[in-house]
Simulated scan of single mutants.
Amino acid sequence: MKTLYFDCTFGIAGDRALAALIDLGADISYIVDHLRKLPIEPFGIEVHNRTNQGIAAKKISIFYQSEKNQHQSTHEISKIIAESELPVKTMECSLAIFHEFANAKGKLNGIDSNEVYFEIASIIEIIGFCLALESLEITEILASPVPAGFGHKMTVQGSYPIPAPTTLELLKGIPLAELNLKGELTTPTGAAILRALVKKFMPIGGLIVDKVGYGAGEKDHPNVLRALLISPSDIQPTPKTVTNQDRESIYILEAQLDDMTGEGLGFAMERLLAAGALDVFYTPVYMKKNRPGTLVTVLVSLNLADRCEQILLEETTTLGVRRSMWSRNILDRRFIEVETPYGPIKVKQACRGNKILHQAPEYEDVARAAREQQVAFQLVYQYAMKLAMSQMGE
């Protein structure tokens, strides 16, 4: 599992995010080869080395064979992605970003999200970014609070305040950082990436930095995005008393159904979890006229609630979704790996400070070892558990 951390000290944009991942080691040939298979305007991507305020970074330039930058609607883009040969995770990631972007812009413009149009440059940046994540084998993304900038920006519609209306809509629920720097620090594409994909916004403290990449923008002031590959620190935090400030706010989404197949419910759960839901579960209930039904419950972070709500409306037969905000007190989690006679097994540990309260071997590792070694699942599980327990006593 690889974790990416975006240090958004100077904001984030689509081109900076893609450039930072290329600087981090994403294979540009892999990205371009997949993009060229899509039925979009012929294009080229150049990667440059640029020094911005003393920081050596990568910068990308996108150019076209025709003089005019073509546009495509969200509906067309969704069709292109669905019918493409892109990796599955890249498809899901790209659709999630376009979905958030189109919803925000459609709401502001008073039009259906499927009627929102994107420039080819934005399409290439977003899909290219998701391909870069695939190339680096990123499984989760964290980020710092993000500054938006201030001032005004000229558009074809006239002068708009910064952050631009679409950017501000996308940044709802995301912690903003204060930076007294004039100009557009965070763009709509950058905000859509954060809203669609970031699991948690947090300071960098308590993590180990394994590798750093820098992506530069066009401006001369510090206009660099840092992308970090990180891993948990082995340093044990000092135990502390849990207060209300340590609690995490989440949304609970609920819908009751009485006319869906088990296969349909299974597919809906798969999409919700892929979209970043913290948990999804089904409860048997009795509805009007004593009809048996299913209560769908989704636990989701604040910034992904809109996305999961839309999936419920699209993938289930519900006519409406209830939403409520809850707070939860969660334990810190970490992984260790134990060497068993059947191969290495990861064990998840739940901690409060430096005290381990619960631990359990990871199902996928145990199941894989049991299949490969042709032994009982419980044998591998108990062996891994015994080794993990013995390490606690060391």
Rank of each mutant, 00 (worst) to 15 (best):
P145S: 12
L273Y: 01
I40W: 13
T241F: 07
L38P: 04
P284N: 14
E248F: 02
V146L: 12
K386C: 02
L299N: 13
M269R: 14
R323P: 11
P232C: 02
N180P: 01
A191D: 06
T294G: 09
A370Y: 11
P163D: 04
P232N: 07
L229N: 02
G320K: 14
M385R: 04
M260S: 12
Q359K: 11
T139L: 02
G110N: 12
L228N: 02
T167W: 08
F43Y: 13
R271D: 10
L142G: 07
I230E: 02
A143R: 09
A19Q: 07
R352T: 00
H71D: 10
V116P: 13
N114M: 11
V347I: 15
P87S: 09
T316I: 14
V298L: 08
P161K: 14
R352K: 08
G106E: 00
L265W: 12
D15S: 14
A350M: 08
G11T: 09
I45Y: 09
Y64E: 04
N109H: 15
L21T: 11
D332E: 15
G276P: 03
F201R: 06
E125L: 15
K355L: 03
E137V: 04
P39K: 08
L228R: 05
E41D: 06
P145G: 10
G151N: 11
Q373D: 01
A17G: 11
K348T: 12
E169V: 06
R271A: 03
G276R: 13
P203I: 04
D258K: 07
Y381G: 00
G343D: 01
E218I: 05
Y342P: 06
A369R: 08
E41L: 13
Q236L: 13
T316F: 15
G25I: 11
C8I: 10
D332Q: 13
G183H: 09
A26I: 09
A102Y: 02
D220K: 10
A384N: 10
G128H: 10
A26Q: 08
L185F: 02
L319P: 03
R323F: 03
G149F: 05
E315H: 12
E125M: 09
P147Y: 08
E178G: 07
Q382A: 11
Y30G: 00
E263V: 03
F129S: 14
I126H: 10
A57F: 03
A360D: 05
S144E: 11
V300W: 09
T155L: 15
H221Q: 07
R247H: 11
K182T: 09
E248I: 15
P361V: 02
R368G: 00
E134T: 12
P341T: 01
D365N: 15
G276E: 11
R334S: 12
A17F: 07
L331M: 15
L24Q: 08
E184N: 05
D27S: 10
I250M: 12
P175Q: 14
D112M: 06
Q72H: 10
R352G: 01
A121R: 05
Q391P: 00
M389E: 09
R323C: 08
V47M: 10
L131Q: 08
A275I: 03
Y5R: 07
T166G: 10
E169G: 04
M392D: 01
I22R: 03
K79G: 01
T167E: 05
T166Q: 08
K386M: 05
G266P: 13
K386D: 12
E254Q: 15
G11F: 04
A20M: 03
T187W: 09
A82E: 15
V338S: 00
K2A: 11
I77D: 04
I55D: 13
T155H: 13
